[in-house]
Design a protein around this nucleic acid. Structure first.
Lengths: 254, 254
DNA sequence: ATGCCTTTGTGAACGCGTGCACAAAGATTG
DNA sequence: CAATCTTTGTGCACGCGTTCACAAAGGCAT
């Protein structure tokens, strides 16, 4: 769905793989911790452990940014912090708006991890007139009517959607129309956006469901390993619903 | 076939790619919406659009679960809802505990998406004695001292960590020692866990940093395009200030 | 300066995930 | 029953990301 000629030139000026970009914040956090402890240099191995990744991967990641290490020594912590920050665009100020000031929106507004990374909450916006003017995180909530003006006045290009699923798409469209080009979506909905707009999605319930899958798998293997006749080691509250078709084979490969 | 497949005959769960598992909740949500509208069947194409994925990918995903579709017709919505729910383990009750009842923990406690998916918040736990007994989401907060007993009594196998980074590893260890085998971590820290324990991480600030990277890249390309004579497709924000090199701006992560 | 030791940077192989394209399978119609 | 139409299920090729393994590069001691 393309509304404009937002055809981005495939000029991979910086051919940094997406997977690498996703890890840069991880490295940055680990490096910041080292910096606070006044550690001058780190090896790829040490840093990899701190960031929870493979050291070869880390070195390859850094090779995309340029080669900032010294063989036989490692990486200069301060220098690397700066380089990664610059690469991620954190050396500039990013005003963001949060739309939907419910429990989650309020939590996000209070979240300290934003300000320390160059993100500034420019405004809190909610559709409920009752909320208007109410202070959250030391900042008055503003009504949705003000959305366009706020974005324009503050030059906001990043929006956070924390509304219920129902209103997310509409909010999204207004944000985009007002000039926002990056959206962090917490609403459990697929957002449709024009080309040139980035959307990242965080769905708490999805994460839990993935955990449940693995949890079930673990329980199943445990049971299979213990073979039949052994009571389940972990008590499971059986509240199994039944499908409309009645019984279905439990675990049978096709 | 020359090389025999090493496909495990025991459980097909093992054969389901991780990427597919991560999409199952997405399909489930779309299917649930269809179910509520009493739509009897859906084609892979329709469902793919609703879930925001490619239809071929969706069909391949479903092929890992078994072939539940009917050629020429599509998929039975109700049946598929049940099959996916069962595969994800959502047909059973999953008691979870939330540790760290700050803004985020409270938001999670109030989050409606849990209960509707078979997750039940068994307890809210916080280290602050001041919090003990205080009701959050209609449920009294309990002190960390009770952690082991709560987990044992309720048969909790999934824990959610929403504490500050400093206390996360310790909480994690206590959870694991008490029997938790799946952890959803919101603390900005790498958790070290023994084999057999799954950890999924959600870091709000990381998501924003990734967005900032792309935003910066867009701004850079926009500038390049404008220089080439092409008008910028989307209004450029007044706040976007490019800092290629030179002095280090004051916005450095602390 | 020379040789040894450490650690980086990267070529190459491998595995996973994705998407295309099409044959097979079932529904539907005459 | 046969022809036609729709949609699934999947073989295959391709590209991305990961990991291994090692040569190159720098530091350091003698």
């Amino acid at each position: 769905m393309a509304t404009g000629r937002t055809h981005r030139p495939a000029t991979r000026s910086r051919g940094i793989p997406e997977a690498t970009v996703a890890r840069l914040p991880l490295y940055l956090r680990a490096l910041t911790a080292l910096s606070e402890r006044s550690v001058p240099t780190v090896s790829s191995e040490e840093l990899a452990v701190a960031a929870g990744v493979n050291s070869a991967k880390l070195r390859k990641d850094f090779s995309y940014l340029g080669s900032y290490g010294t063989r036989g020594v490692g990486y200069d912590v301060e220098y690397l912090v700066y380089q990664i920050s610059r690469e991620l665009g954190l050396t500039q100020d990013w005003p963001v708006v949060i739309v939907g000031i419910g429990n989650l929106g309020a939590a996000l507004a209070n979240y300290g991890g934003f300000a320390s990374r160059g993100f500034r909450v420019a405004a809190l916006i909610d559709a409920d007139p009752e909320m208007a003017g109410k202070p959250v995180a030391g900042m008055p909530v503003q009504h949705t009517d003000e959305l366009e003006r706020i974005i324009s006045d503050n030059g906001v290009s990043i929006g956070v959607i924390a509304t219920p699923a129902g209103g997310a798409q509409q909010v999204c469209e207004r944000l985009v129309a007002a000039g926002v080009t990056s959206i962090l979506n917490f609403a459990p909905t697929v957002l449709t956006v024009p080309d040139g707009v980035d959307v990242r999605k965080v769905d708490l319930s999805i994460e839990l469901q993935i955990l449940a899958f693995h949890e079930q798998r673990k329980a199943g293997e445990e049971a299979a390993a213990a073979e039949a006749g052994t009571p389940p080691p972990i008590r499971s509250t059986a509240a199994s619903r039944k499908g409309p078709d009645g019984e279905v084979p439990a675990v049978m490969p096709a």
